[in-house]
Design a protein around this nucleic acid. Structure first.
Lengths: 201, 201, 201, 201
DNA sequence: AATGAATGAGGGTTCATTCAT
DNA sequence: AATGAATGAACCCTCATTCAT
């Protein structure tokens, strides 16, 4: 039968399944995504997929945690400031650099961006399996950005809302226009405009 | 059930169905929404719903067009400028006033806002029944805003991207935080910051 | 749903489904019985069956209630004594006559007997969907028989246990031996032996 | 705990598996019992269980034979009469003593009793893996009891049916009432009533 | 002795839809 | 205008079992 492709390395399958899941969930969201589609997309049977993750919801959460972990390693690992007290000591330039790096990374993996875009909205509904994940994530994002802006703008919490909203909004519109503009450039300009107010404060 | 007997001449049942549909689609999106749930939410049978709209996709489009029509009547009807050539003649103050009115109206019907939020993202996928609707709507929004900004900012198209993104982003974050901040106030401030660059142009 | 006559003229399909369900559940019990088998046994599709009953558990309960209703109409309807106070006024001869009629009827519908035999035991487990049904039924049987024996034997409750147990036991053994003996005759003799103690009381 | 097993040598795992199996099968029967549940109930993997027994059916039969063996050792071992010809020579007092001991033992291990109760009924169906086991067991029980009663009652075979039925019936009702009465006492009394006829014979 | 991987078959249930009434 | 019946397809998930390790 199949000699080469059938028996692969041990941990190969689960991560290949997660990769396929990102693609599919990124297109149809959680409700439009089916295990069967995922299974046949990576050449496994449906129970074969469930053998590794147990449940549809578990697949979703595994995908989210995997992406978050990789993002953390790629962007945030180098940043030594994790204690909340220290976040406010970050310079404005470093703040921009950090968020710029995040947006830049996002612009290079649009399928992951698409997944987060759609799930973030779907998960507003409390019974959604990723509700908790995104609620926490959103709260944390607003808090961290606000802390970073502490002492640099007049109303850090309000500015955090605007910065986070602008970032999410630009990413969504970017995807909606089939990536027809330079996401990073637009974001850089927008951030400049938003933070320019500091001068007058 | 007793209420159903005193039906008005023009059956208000279709519009009551649409109201329920807004609620449900706004929570679970198109894929997570089922006709059965819609039917029992407004006390009709499933074929009873289909009798009026024929198809699940048709329900979705009917909802979208109904909302768009009502929005148009509420916000845009008073604006005399519809011809593309005339849009650029609108004053910056009127431009802000118009968008402000839209955001203000949206903030008063969060369930409709939720519906547009989720569908806008879901419909990125070309096979989604509302793909065409949202693609056109998005293109039109960017074009109209850009035309309005013509002659008022240095890069109207770029600014349109930022304004549209900021609006969408704020609305999403507003919903995600259980409407924990004043959407209109944040939007007003953000628009001021974005359009402030005009001074230096 | 709550209707006296199950068999509607237009479509006897629900009652034909119940008849097939008796057969199958009587052989494999609740856990060994599948809707698919039931469906193809009476020429319907699986959703066709579920259209009428909604759920596997609901089928089971519908079967039980249908049988109980028919038994009530066939055996107990003629008995005017239903008020607990009146049960003890029943003569011993009438008591025997009533239970005899029940056993006689059971001996004529072994498939229904088989169904009750297996479910009665399966339902000892509290999570079984028929647990409540059989628990109540068992309590009621012991209570009713005890009341009937009031004033006729020295220990009515103990005798009720023996009578009920003997009846159930004989029916089970009868089924287990492929109905190799005369159930009614054995029951008549056994009851005579059990109630003979009255002489010495 | 009861140190009943004598295979204490290396691996008591098989017997621990059997103990868990008794519990589960006793609650849900053969059809409602799954290897997975059994496995996780005793901290082994599914193939781990199958490694010892090979098959689901084999587990069932191993359980039955193990119980039968222990019952034989506990109750019947002391009885010297095994040759059919000798059974009829047993005194009536010894007959009662022997069956009393069996019922007494059963009353002390209700989970095993439950298992036999449910399987005995389930196995009426010829395709059940324990059909043969219980059919033989039932035939043997009726024959052995009949032989024991030979020369002591007028119709030994009929009386055997009643004695066996009464025993099984009392055990079932006892379990159904959450063991609310004294099983052994009820059985003793019932047997007295049934065998009282000897006086008139 | 014991496990992780994988699978074919089947479980109950929901889905959007058609059709006769 | 509205319903009950019915269905094919798809849903997530569990089953007992095999096999390489």
């Amino acid at each position: 039968m199949i000699e080469a492709t059938k028996r692969t390395r041990l941990s190969d399958r689960p991560s290949r399944i997660l990769d396929s899941a990102i693609e599919i969930i990124g297109q149809r969201g959680y409700y439009g995504f089916s295990i069967k589609e995922l299974a046949s997309a990576c050449g496994v049977t449906v129970p074969g997929v469930l053998h590794h993750f147990g449940t549809k919801d578990a697949i979703l959460l595994a995908v989210l945690k995997d992406i978050e972990r990789r993002d953390y390693e790629a962007v945030w690992k180098g940043v030594p400031l994790t204690a909340p007290a220290k976040l406010s000591e970050m310079s404005l330039a470093n703040f921009k650099r950090l968020l710029h790096a995040t947006v830049d990374r996002n612009s290079q993996q649009p399928n992951i961006l698409r997944l987060f875009s759609i799930l973030r909205i779907e998960a507003h509904y409390p019974e959604h399996p990723a509700f908790e994940f995104f609620y926490q994530r959103n709260v944390r994002a607003l808090r961290v950005v606000a802390e970073m802006l502490e002492g640099k703008v007049t109303a850090p919490k309000d500015m955090a809302i605007k910065v986070v909203s602008m970032t999410a909004g630009l990413e969504d519109v970017w995807l909606a226009t089939s990536m027809a503009f330079d996401l990073v450039k637009q974001w850089d300009e927008a951030i400049e405009m938003l933070l320019h107010e500091k001068v007058f404060a």
